[in-house]
């Protein structure tokens, strides 16, 4: 009996250590994850391919400097209190805002308004300059872009979304925004992309940027491989 208690206590201590470490790692994740941004219901519907879908809007921002703040001067609606673009910002690392975790409803038409303020350059794979998976026109600063997409050597960031493994049918969305030709700061005049897509089945989707804005081989080191800067989740509910 005494030995059984001893064994039990050992197991409990072990489990407690494990839970403590686990909480540490979980907390580490929230160092890089902002509160979820939900797509806004417009209350309207629109016909897409013969189906009537609810329309949602989602605002997206890409900043050259993750240490800046997200407020009216950087594209947020007037009256928004300044909050850090990224909880754990790093000078010289770009980031997306207002969050890196989004929530959108399944099987809805999502209209995205994207303000891109970062600099850029050439893509690794010029195919990503072409929008894929969008519905209707894709506009840049109010003007429709050609079907072949934007100039692959003048790309700022891309918004590339994939469904969770096993989600069927195949869901893939990719839109590239051109670089900011001026001096890129968090408050400079953005390149505004507007596009719409139809969300897929429920699941935990992933988005990331396919423009190599990190360092190292392929430009995918550092910020590109750090979770929560150029990548994140989309909850499709």
């Amino acid at each position: 009996m005494k030995r059984a208690i001893g064994a039990l206590v050992t197991v409990l201590i072990g489990a407690a250590i494990f839970v403590a470490i686990g909480i540490g790692f979980h907390a580490q994740k929230y160092q890089s994850v902002a509160p979820t941004t939900k797509a806004v219901d417009t209350g309207t519907t629109q016909m897409v391919n013969g189906k009537s879908l609810k329309v949602y809007t989602l605002n997206l921002y890409s900043y050259p400097d993750s240490t800046g703040t997200f407020d009216a001067s950087t594209g947020a609606p007037a009256g928004t209190k300044p909050v850090a673009i990224h909880k754990n910002g790093n000078p010289g690392w770009p980031a997306y805002g207002p969050s890196n975790v989004f929530q959108i409803p399944a099987h809805a038409l999502v209209k995205v308004h994207w303000e891109q303020r970062d600099s850029g350059g050439s893509l690794n794979n010029s195919w990503f300059a072409k929008p894929t998976g969008t519905v209707g026109p894709v506009t840049l600063n109010g003007k429709e872009i050609p079907a072949s997409g934007i100039d692959p050597s003048q790309v700022g960031h891309t918004f590339t979304v994939r469904a969770e493994p096993g989600v069927d049918p195949h869901f893939f969305l990719n839109v590239a925004a051109p670089l900011n030709p001026g001096n890129p700061t968090d408050t400079s005049t953005p390149q505004v992309m507007e596009f719409s897509f139809v969300s897929g089945n429920k699941g935990l989707y992933e988005w990331n940027c396919e423009f190599p804005c990190g360092n190292g081989i392929g430009g995918f080191g550092a910020v590109m491989s750090a979770y929560g800067f150029m990548s994140g989740y989309i909850h499709v509910v």
Binding site: E164, P165, F172, E206, N208, S231
Partner: peptide
């Protein structure tokens, strides 16, 4: 019929999502 395409070599952050059909 359908089949899956997966990435079988750890390739960084979003390796798990490097899948398609």
């Amino acid at each position: 019929g359908k089949f899956d395409v997966r990435c079988s070599q750890l390739c960084g952050l979003e390796h798990a999502y490097m899948q398609t059909t």
